[in-house]
Nucleic acid binder design. Structure first.
Lengths: 345, 345
DNA sequence: TTGTAGGCGTTATCAT
DNA sequence: ATGATAACGCCTACAA
């Protein structure tokens, strides 16, 4: 049995109310001497307050749930670190919930989180406007912030990066480097980030008057293997292109592999780009040119937001859009003029 | 305010005791009809039990702390996933604690975890026999298991992989491939896994009668940059070697980069190996030959262990040693006979 | 300045 | 088969 407020009270010959006062640093209501004495005893007995009991009466807790698809996905650790670092600075703990984008798992986590009296929830998921889990959150009156994905739901705090602009700028960069035939390996359909990025790609092309050719747009699933497959297909089908933009780094790495395996020189013959700037992007060869998201920062900001919410403080903006930036490295360069004679044709 | 057991009781015209009985599925003590009625009301009112309150009386919680250095380190996500997956299957939640191997941070997390009445703790850290935080855990009578590192402390449950054997086998593999001059880039000193791996390397060499040459043993810090630096140094100092074994993949990736940059062919001129088999190892070019640890499995096993402990059940073994295995890929091959004429000499 | 007592949502013991 | 009630550790009016 651990030491409780009662033990301290008994030892100090005061009431538990007095002890409680010094524990909570109530500035008034305790004599200086008593305070000192109690402090000493607390230390001697190695007492620490029981947050669970405290939570019962204050209706608060320092537990924040973090629901995300999968911590093994290299995109998330940085973001999670950001969340955890700033949360812990304010005394909050993070409960990790890997839900694999599975609605049932998410619902189950939400429930357990509620049962545990979690103060708030970070929610990273493929969410639709009328999502049932969203209702769970709203009806449960539990503060939450949506992260990473741009979702068209009003009145719900969210923080994400501008995926349209990110991919727009990347495509634009390719175009400015002379590329006209730019293949695209997209993420899964009906996934907001994926949709947004595709949109950015298309917009950049049409803004420059380049025809969008469905033949060189492939739909992958954000995983490495699908990058391989679609790169393979792109080549096998005899398509004509000098660059390929991938909707994320994983697929770009897969695509790069295929290219190298075929003896096609990157970036001399074909330029290739990614998205996310996961750590791996900086160690491939050639190093991957990609779109960097401020992942860690996103985590920090989301945490600050949620904590304010939890504490009932005002938040200035409900929607925070972070700017992505290009990480120009080695995998994309100026189109070579004699690309017609590329080895792969 | 959320629905409580009282609301259910009132609605059903029974006492809270009865409601409690059906909530906890007590087989006896409730009439069939009453039970049905209560079940329905629970559903209708969308009631869920408050675990915090329950914990107050049962002295239990479903919260497990996971103290690790840094989730951003690519080695950990898989392991964490293993922990979380099996924990959640048994209804336990994981509180993530990134402590950066910092004793104070760890101590602070341990404290908060105790305050939150955590049921148990996974502890991944560079721990010494008389570590103060260890005492905190033991004195606090909080069940915990040590993970990942082999630590020489009795009577404390631990699960880790055999690092000596892992590196022994890798060095042996290199030797069997004709290498005699095998450089080594070690992890930091006084780090158990690092020490063990170095030990394995040395043992493999001496078992074969190969002289250990301190000149080609460098001490890094497990980070990519130090792999770069020491590879550079190895070459600059004009050392003679045909292979270099690195104590982890990160450093191997850094070393590989330097080699490629210098135009030295891997593996034709120099073989290189890593340790850990993080995802990245499978996408470098050449793909990294490395020592694979069953990371996910380690997480699962540790979780099973801790949960048993928490539930007061018997555990069969206090120390579980997992076997590493070689992941033979492309970065290490047979020593070429004319290595004397390598381009880098 | 300090103490008393009620209550937070449950479980568990003991009656009925 | 059910109900009343103490207890878990703490906070917080309200009283003294």
């Amino acid at each position: 049995m651990s030491v409780t407020i009662k033990d301290i009270a008994k030892e100090a010959n005061v009431s538990i109310a007095t002890v409680s006062r010094v524990i909570n640093n109530k500035s008034e209501g305790v004599g200086k001497e008593t305070r000192e004495k109690i402090r000493k005893i607390i230390k001697d007995l190695n007492y620490y307050p029981n947050r669970v009991a405290r939570g019962m009466v204050t209706k608060q807790s320092n537990i924040l749930g973090l629901i995300l698809p999968d911590i093994s996905n290299p995109f998330f650790p940085d973001l999670v670190r950001g969340v955890e670092d700033t949360a812990s600075k304010s005394g909050y703990n993070i409960v990790l919930c890997n839900a694999d984008n599975n609605k049932d798992k998410e619902a189950s986590y939400i429930r357990v989180l509620k049962e545990n009296n979690a103060a708030g929830i970070f929610y990273i998921s493929v969410i639709k406007k009328n999502d049932n889990n969203l209702k769970l959150l709203v009806d449960g009156k539990i503060p939450f912030v949506l992260m990473d994905r741009r979702i068209n739901i009003e009145n719900v705090p969210k923080v994400y990066t501008d995926n349209v602009t990110g991919m727009y700028e990347m495509a634009d960069y390719l175009i400015k480097n002379g590329h006209r035939r730019i293949a695209y390996i997209s993420g899964p359909k009906h996934n907001s980030s994926s949709d947004q990025r595709l949109k950015g790609y298309k917009k950049a092309l049409s803004d420059t008057g380049i025809t969008i050719d469905p033949d060189i747009i492939k739909v992958g699933d954000y995983k490495l293997e699908s990058g391989r497959q679609h790169m393979q297909a792109l080549i096998d089908e005899g398509n004509n292109f000098t660059a390929v933009a991938c909707a994320n780094d994983m697929m770009a790495v897969g695509a790069l592999e295929v290219l190298k395996h075929k003896g096609i020189k990157v970036p001399q013959e074909i330029s290739i780009t990614g998205y996310d700037d996961i750590f791996m992007a900086s160690v491939t060869s050639p190093k991957l040119t990609t779109v960097a998201q401020p992942k860690y920062k996103m985590g920090c900001i989301a945490a600050e937001l949620l904590i304010k919410l939890v504490q009932g403080r005002q938040i200035s903006r409900k929607e925070i859009i972070l700017k992505p930036s290009l990480a120009i490295r080695e995998s994309a360069i100026k189109r070579s003029d004699n690309f017609e004679n590329c080895s792969y044709r």
